[in-house]
């Protein structure tokens, strides 16, 4: 399959079940809401080393948030519910509670409950105030700046982690530019995050290593400087590969995000230095979710053909 001169390889991304939740962070200004969101989702690129994967889902305009102030929604994913229940209150307490003017609300109603203020209310040392009206409880914690308002808990969802695609380009500059364009386009699809720095991974990994005790190591088959010395997945003209990893609330949302991202890269076309799109997998035996690139891009490929 070739779209606008870019080869879509007959490959698939292999993804895993993850448990995730959504938080809505509001603040007096969009800037402070984003600072809290970025801090909370910092050091959360991969569960391998961070315990969770997290990222900014989208900005929410003032008027559409629970308290009417500008907000940001973030998603946090962990490998199981027990881990999620640990990491969410930790990040809430260290990164949102501490951030000026913020408040934090549940971004999901369904699923098992993940504690928010139910855990961190004790910071208020007995001065915490609970309000339960209807079925929803929130807490007010007196802090030096004023009051921190936070929902008691939030819902959770069984999502998908590790959806991905690889951009194979002639130069580092071309690969990065394509990745940036893809990340921007994928930001419009709700229910997903791209947990790596700026949404892009330059050091995709394979499972295992020659060194004992190392779970993951560099994906040598896609390292251009090793081309010819190892069994490579690259062709001679590929000078750089960037990966985009996607975690989402459902298979469909990750598939749609993948499609939008690849489409954006293909629109740049071969003339901007893009050679091919590939995906990372482990042979199909480890993860239950398979995102087959050619199936996902079938409709777009047809449209690209009829376009003059």
């Amino acid at each position: 399959m070739i779209i606008n001169g870019v080869e879509i390889r007959d490959s698939f991304a292999e993804a895993f079940p993850m448990v995730g939740t959504r938080l809505i962070i509001t603040a007096d200004t969009p800037e402070w809401a984003m600072i809290a969101a970025r801090t909370t989702t910092g050091f959360a690129t991969s569960v391998i080393g961070c315990g969770c994967e997290a990222g900014v889902e989208r900005e929410i305009p003032a008027g559409q948030t629970p308290d009417g102030r500008p907000g940001v929604s973030i998603l946090i994913f962990a490998m199981d519910f027990g881990s999620l229940k640990k990491v969410v209150p930790l990040r809430l307490g260290q990164c949102i509670l501490t951030c000026p003017t913020t408040a934090c609300y549940a971004g999901m109603e369904e699923g098992k409950r993940v504690p928010l203020a139910r855990t961190i209310r004790y910071f208020a040392d007995g001065h915490q105030i609970s309000k339960k009206i209807g079925s929803k409880r929130f807490w007010r914690l007196p802090v030096m700046e004023g009051e921190f308002v936070c929902d008691d808990d939030t819902g959770s969802v069984e999502g998908v982690g590790g959806g991905n695609f690889l951009i194979l380009a002639r130069t580092r500059e071309a690969a990065l530019r394509a990745a940036e364009v893809a990340v921007k386009a994928m930001g419009t699809v709700e229910g997903n995050i791209l947990p790596f720095p700026g949404g892009v991974v330059r050091s995709g990994s394979k499972v295992g290593s020659k060194y004992k005790g190392l779970f993951a190591s560099t994906n040598h088959a896609y390292c251009p400087t090793l081309y010819g010395t190892v069994e490579s997945a690259l062709t001679p003209e590929v000078g750089s590969v960037m990966e985009i990893v996607i975690d989402g609330v459902s298979f469909d949302s990750v598939a749609e995000s993948t499609r939008v991202g690849i489409k954006a890269v293909c629109e740049l076309g071969a003339e901007s230095g893009i050679v091919a799109i590939d995906a990372g997998n482990y042979g199909g035996n480890l993860g239950p979710f398979h995102f087959k690139l050619r199936e996902i891009m079938a409709e777009d490929a047809k449209l690209a053909e009829v376009r003059p």
């Binding site: 308290d67 408040a103 308002v149």
Partner: peptide
């Protein structure tokens, strides 16, 4: 008090 804004909406 942010809680006032929250209660006014919720």
């Amino acid at each position: 008090l942010i809680a006032l804004r929250l209660m006014a909406r919720r």
